[in-house]
Simulated assay, not measured.
Amino acid sequence: MITHSRTSAQCVLNDISNHNRGSNAAKMRSDATNSRLNDFCPQPCDVDNTADGVDERHFDDPTFVADYANDIHEYLRSRESSTSVSPFYMKSQRNINEQMRQILVNFLVDVHFRFGLVQATLYLTVNILDRFLSSEEATRVTRTNLQLVGIATLLISSKFEEVWALTSTDCVCVCDNAYSEKEVVDMEASILWALNYEINVPSAHTFMVRYLTAVNATTDVVSLSNYVLDGTLQSYYLLNFLPSQLAAAAVFISRKTLGEDAWCPELVRHALYCEEDVLPVARAVIAVKVYCSAGLFAVERKYGRGDFEVGGPSIVELCSDF
């Protein structure tokens, strides 16, 4: 088990003032969520996304499951609306708010990086967190146990995605013994019960990997795309967009930043979005980065060192003409 420096995340969470919630705030149902997402977000282009040689390049590597890759991607696209959460779910929360969520995700990004977990684990963690917080079970979540919810979602995700998963002892350690192992395990069970054990869901990272593979992206584009997409996790506002749209925006921004053609026919074919559809999503992602809350720089710390180093001019500066 790695050593972990003391974090002030719990203290910050406890210091944030609670927002008053109207007594008439109703929980959004899944059909309302899908309707809102469809109204707000650009719709996919009607294009042919059949195999064009992208998957054939990986037939010799069984880890790419090239024979089924296109079918898998189509299946994920068909499920992303049903596994996304309402962009209004905080209205049903009386004890927590958007800023608390932002601080918690910042903490989870730090913990995820320090344990050296895979990217898929991080995105699944945030998805589980949002889906649980939007459930009826989460009405009992308060400032004092919000970090417990967060670390339990990371525990669940690591068990699903990692070869060597976290343990309840690891979770207690990174929370500075604020909770017991029993509390962590009990919260894990509560989350799984509230989500009906539905853990295998599409993520923005999965879509992004597909898009980057389609254009045979360079190392710089891959690194910058991951950096941009990780930055979307903290924003409650970006829940207005579907995972596939955020993934497309991350690739768009990184290619434009590095001087490449921002969008190309291969991306239209595999992402099913035209450039004019991706552009408003990219603008929203850039806007969120411009107004990033002070002190919440876990993503910058992650990509500012080692194999994740991202240098050069600011993305905001290079994309100011969006």
Rank of each mutant, 00 (worst) to 15 (best):
S235H: 11
Y273L: 02
L224V: 06
W193G: 02
R57Y: 01
P265G: 02
F40L: 03
Y197N: 14
V268S: 10
T167P: 05
P44E: 05
Q93F: 06
Q234F: 00
K302I: 00
E309Y: 15
V111C: 08
C274D: 15
R131Q: 11
R283S: 12
V310Y: 07
I191W: 11
Y75F: 12
I151T: 09
L224Q: 11
V12D: 09
D170S: 07
K27C: 07
A249I: 02
A32H: 13
L212N: 12
D261Q: 13
T50N: 12
V12L: 13
V185Y: 10
E188N: 11
P265R: 03
S134T: 03
F241K: 01
H4F: 15
G295Y: 09
S17R: 10
W263R: 01
K91A: 07
A66W: 05
A32K: 06
R283W: 02
V12C: 09
F308T: 06
V251S: 11
F241Y: 15
F40T: 09
F88N: 11
D170C: 08
A152Q: 12
S84R: 05
F132I: 07
V290N: 07
S86D: 11
V290S: 06
V109Q: 12
V215N: 07
E309L: 13
A248T: 08
Y273T: 00
R101A: 04
V221F: 08
F113D: 15
M90S: 05
V201R: 14
S314D: 15
G116V: 06
L166W: 01
D321W: 00
S17T: 06
A25W: 10
N226D: 13
A204H: 11
D307M: 11
D39A: 01
